[in-house]
Amino acid sequence: MSTTQTRIAYEFIKRRILNGVFKPSQKLTENKLAEEINVSRNTVKKALMMLEKENLVYVETNKGATIKSFTLEEMLNYLEVREVLEGLIGRKAALNITDHQLLQLEELYNEMSTLIKQNSFDEYSKKNRMFHQIIYEASENPEAVKMINTIKTQLNRYYFRTILVPGRKEQSIKEHGAILKSLQSRDPVKCEEAVKKHVMNLRELIQGNYNYLV
């Protein structure tokens, strides 16, 4: 089967894992997926193996695939690693960021401020990703960014619901404002602190609301 069809199957399944259509610990049936995606069962099998490498599913011989479910301890450990990496990214971004990138961040921040007041969480999430992507690009450290994105991909389905926790939306926009201010001042120490605090607060939020988020 073509690589293109494998990629289509991979994207189809991954998208449903990340947006919560496929739930943690849910069993996936290869035949059913093959019919739904209109590809062969072998293509689905290859796609599931790709997702297993990303730690989104686990595949057992003769038992099929199951959506990976993370324990609270695993999630906190991942976020602890992410906090360190994001701090490094923030420090380097403060030193390398361009005037154009700062303008882009300011525009995004203003849009995010409006969206959060309107409770437009889907759009806020999109702008949020764009905001961080600019910082990642400014850091000029693609290796660290790749590791961060791996962690974010694995935990994305949990992140999405954190904004619904009372008080989180106000805290989130405040944290992004602090990150923007530190970048505008091109202060690597303050930026590292602001970014790490952003992830630390997320970790504490997940720890205190784990049963709601899973």
Rank of each mutant, 00 (worst) to 15 (best):
S25I: 05
F160N: 00
P166W: 07
D187H: 04
Q207S: 15
M200C: 01
T4V: 11
Q154E: 12
C191P: 11
K46H: 09
R91L: 13
A138P: 10
Y212S: 07
E175H: 08
P24K: 01
S125K: 14
A144S: 05
A34Q: 01
L48C: 07
S120I: 03
S139T: 06
L103W: 11
L18S: 14
F160R: 09
Y158Q: 05
R168T: 12
S69Y: 02
K117N: 15
G208F: 11
I67M: 05
G208R: 13
E204F: 02
L115C: 01
A93Q: 14
V57Y: 02
F12P: 06
H100E: 14
E74N: 06
F22T: 06
L205H: 03
P24E: 01
P188Q: 02
Q26D: 10
N42L: 14
L48S: 07
G20I: 15
V59Q: 01
E192W: 08
K117M: 14
L102N: 13
K146P: 04
T61I: 10
I151D: 00
L205K: 00
E60S: 14
S172I: 01
K190P: 00
K117S: 14
Q5Y: 15
I97S: 03
V195I: 15
N38C: 07
G177L: 07
L95H: 00
Y78H: 08
I67G: 05
I89H: 05
L48W: 04
N38M: 06
Q118E: 14
R157M: 09
E54H: 10
V44S: 02
N209A: 03
H176F: 06
Q154D: 04
Y78K: 10
I97M: 03
L164T: 06
L180W: 08
L88A: 12
Q5A: 15
T43D: 01
M147A: 14
L28F: 10
F22P: 07
N156W: 11
K27L: 04
L33K: 00
